[in-house]
Amino acid sequence: MADTGHNLIIDVPGLRVGNADDASAATGVTVVVFDEPAVASLAIMGGGPGVRDTALLEPEMTVQTVDAIVLSGGSAFGLDAAGGAMSALARHGRGFEVGSARVPIVPQAVLFDLINGGSKPWAAGDGIPPYRALAEAAVENALAAQGAFPLGTHGAGFGATTVNLKGGLGSASARTPEGHWVGALVAVNAVGSAVIGDGPHFWAAPYERDGEFGGLGLPASIPAKALIPRFKGGPNENTTIAIVATDAALTKAQAKRLALAAHDGMARALRPAHALLDGDLIFAASTGRRPLGPSPYELSTLGLAAADVLARAIARGIHTATALPYAGSLPGWQAIFNTNNLKNI
């Protein structure tokens, strides 16, 4: 089936995306809000995740659906964001009913962006972290959203970095042969690199569509030095956090399988991925707008599509990101690999 849409996760019917960021602090929040409660699970492959309310996403747990999912900067300070998202959603009448109370279900993951040059006095005990307020704003932005949202240095990707280039917020989408939409949203704050060696080619190049991250393909050969691992900063300074979503109706166990399969996309697009002290993780959500067929290969096809769109989303997040305005900040891909520089590649 032909693809149409924005090439963003919002092509999956039944969800919206909102961003909010603090330029002075060089950090931000991204929230996916579901029009109706969505089935969701997750898979954590990194060794040092920062999460909130994710245990309930395991298939054996009682809660079956979520109202929103939050991705945030700020490391553990950023976990305040889920509370802000809950407050905003409750004002809109969303949440699990418990007597006269409503409790929005909002799992969250965070990435480390505390030492990227932004002003974060609250990380040294002076003042209040901005994440609760940012998440409230991101929810309101999602509910008011009309059409596409920006990628790169926005939302949860605002302060993100990789080993050699500015990281950022990425997204992509596709349709399976059965007609299901699959989309990915990712904040790329990787310990390694999304490009081969010193660039400009992306590891995700085989999966690119319509020149969405430069259209360069793969280089004629991959030099041995490009396969030597390179690591950014300290062991606790990295995490790539993502959401994959589909309109196929899934159970929580099937959503778990989708999240696991989607991790292949992270491994295709980043080298290395899933490092020991990273928090690399993927949420998977189903808006349930279309029935899933009886063949087990249909779920497998969803998993393959989820991996592909996540690989593409990671490259798009790097391709569109712009440098932070601080001395020593990592450059954006387009600032180095502009059209003139690529003529002889």
Rank of each mutant, 00 (worst) to 15 (best):
P121V: 03
S100I: 05
G73L: 08
V33T: 06
G84D: 02
I128D: 15
S87I: 04
P107R: 00
T62C: 14
L111Q: 01
P59Q: 14
P121D: 03
T62S: 15
F77E: 02
D67P: 06
T65W: 13
V110M: 09
R102L: 06
P49Q: 04
T27I: 07
D113P: 00
P37Q: 05
E97R: 12
G28W: 10
A82S: 09
A123K: 15
S100N: 08
G84V: 03
G127D: 12
G93N: 02
A38P: 13
A43N: 11
A68S: 05
S24Y: 11
Q64C: 11
V103W: 03
R52W: 14
V70I: 03
I115C: 07
P37G: 11
L71R: 08
T27H: 05
E97V: 13
R102V: 03
T54D: 14
N116I: 00
G127P: 15
P129G: 15
E60Y: 13
V51C: 14
V106C: 00
V31L: 06
G83M: 06
G48I: 13
P104I: 00
A85D: 02
M45V: 10
D126I: 14
V31E: 01
V39D: 11
I115N: 11
A25I: 08
F112L: 04
S75W: 07
W122R: 14
A101N: 07
